[in-house]
Structures are given as structure tokens and as C-alpha cells.
Amino acid sequence: MELIFGPSTQKSSKREYDAIIIGAGPAGLTAAIYLARAKLSTLILEKLVPGGLAATTDKIENYPGFPEGIGGEELTSRMEKQAVNFGVDIVLEEVLDVDFLSNPKVIKTSDSEYTGRGIIIATGTSPKSLNVPGEQKFRGKGISYCATCDAPFFQDKEVVVIGCGNSGIQEGIYLKKFAKKITFVEFLPHMTAEKVLQERVRALDNVEFLLNHQVTAFEGEEKLTGVRVKNRETGEEFLIPADGAFVYVGLKPNTDFLKGKIEMDNAGFIKTDEDLKTSIPGVFAAGDVRTTILRQVATAVGDGALAAKLLEEELGG
């Protein structure tokens, strides 16, 4: 078993920075590395744990440089150490409010207040819920959104994975190391995961695929016992008996605290131009949080580097 630890988090007494990055996922950490190397004082504010969503996935196989794949946590903790080595402050506080109109810009957190001359928003996304009956009730009682966290509770059990995009299929393959049987449910008539993942999942024993099916409810007494689905073609409804259900039906942007402060699309993703500038001068957005067609570590890292470079130029660095 691995022994995992991050750089011990800091309590920063410093309040004024050249650059403040919100979110310590791959996008934020990369931006920080570039800014710190440009000798700008740089703070990252993170509400949970450094690493972001990438840290919650067992293995990343499509990020270049790791021919055998690399654990999501291992990859991001290396980014984190690299950022800290270049002098970045990482502080674990949630950003609750911002004032982008004052100069310098003000960032309010759960604990304190900071100012930055330039800001990069890299708050990423959170798993979406399905909003069907039973989902709230059975959350933590069979329904889970983190396979690496909760898979061991479903040893030799029957599990439903909802969503056949990259995340659903990839996490389903991991879950199959524990679960006896997995039923994959997908709303669309086809899977959207990468072809190599599709081939791999189809080769597993005891997996079933219900494409063009919609989840209508989660059922059970004290804990989850089944997932109700509807065939979207025939309208037929039936119950899949299950001890667990893992939900991977897309992502919603972590932008609630920015409502009305910055331009967003209808789904709440931040709009940027091709230089990653937002509607507010001096504020950039990078990674999964912005309107884009691909949300991956490789794109998040690319965004982070570009946003940092352009912010550096803007600050006259």
C-alpha cells in the first residue's frame, strides 16, 4: 500500500499577492508553477484537497509521459510539490465571494480576505446528480460518486454504473475488481467513452449494457436495493436489483460563488476568448470550469500555462 502525503499545508499570514488562483486542480497548479517561475508572488486557494477531480481517479492513461499510466493522485501530488518548490503558497480555504471591480481585486474566503492584482479561476467541476426520486435519500446508502473511495463496500455485490462516457466506463472497469456484476446504463443510444475503453469494458465478464435507457428512480428501504430504468425506445420500465449505484452523468461547473460577477454560458461555465480572458480585465479562467469541448488533464494543464503567461504579460512581468 502506498504512503501518500502532500506538502503540509500552510497558514499564510500574507494577504497581498500578485496573482491569486482559485482551485488547486491540474489547471490551477500548472498556472501557479508558471507564475512562480516568473517571480510573481502566487497564492492558490483550495476548498478541499489539492489535486482536484484528477486526484479522485485511480489511473490516468492518456496523459503523455506515463506509458504505463499514472495514478491520478500521484500525478497531481507531483504537480503540487513542484508548485510548492517554486514558492507558491497553497492555502486550504474556500472562496465564497469576490470583488473583481476593485483594484487590486478582492477574494473573500471562509477564513479571511486576500487581494491579487490578477486572478485565475480554475475551480473545475463537480459530478452532476440525476435529480430523480431516491437520489438524495440513498446518497451514502448505496449511491456514490467516488469509486476509488467507496468501491471496497461493494465487494461481490451487484452494482449499476450510470453514464457511459469516459468517467463512467473507466471507473466501472475499476469497480469490476470488486463488484460481482455491473450493469451500465446510458441515456444515449451509444457509449461516448474512448474506443479503447469501450473495447476493454466489453471484454469483462459479468457486465451488461443498457443503452438508450433512462434512470427514473432509486429504490430501497434503509439502503439502496435497486435502480429503476426506462427503455427510451419501447417505454418499458423495470427494476435492476443493485446494492450500489455510481453516478457519472456529467459535470457542473463550480461557479455558484461567481454568479453575476462574470459572464457565463447557460450551464454556468465561464466564457473566455481564445486567450482565456473572461469578461473582466485581469481575470482569466482555465481548465474544466470554462466553456470548452474537452475536459481532461492535458487540456487543463495547457490552459493553466497559457493563462499564467498572459496574466504575467498583463501584470507587466
Binding site: 484537497v49 489535486g51 486526484a55 485511480d58 476509488t148 473511495c149 471496497p152
Partner: peptide
């Protein structure tokens, strides 16, 4: 906790 849970140490 489980050892593979990133949020558990918090």
C-alpha cells in the same frame, strides 16, 4: 475511511 479516499484525511 478507506485508504484510497482523498477526502477522508480532512
Amino acid at each position: 475511511v478507506t485508504p484510497s479516499c482523498p477526502y477522508c484525511p480532512i
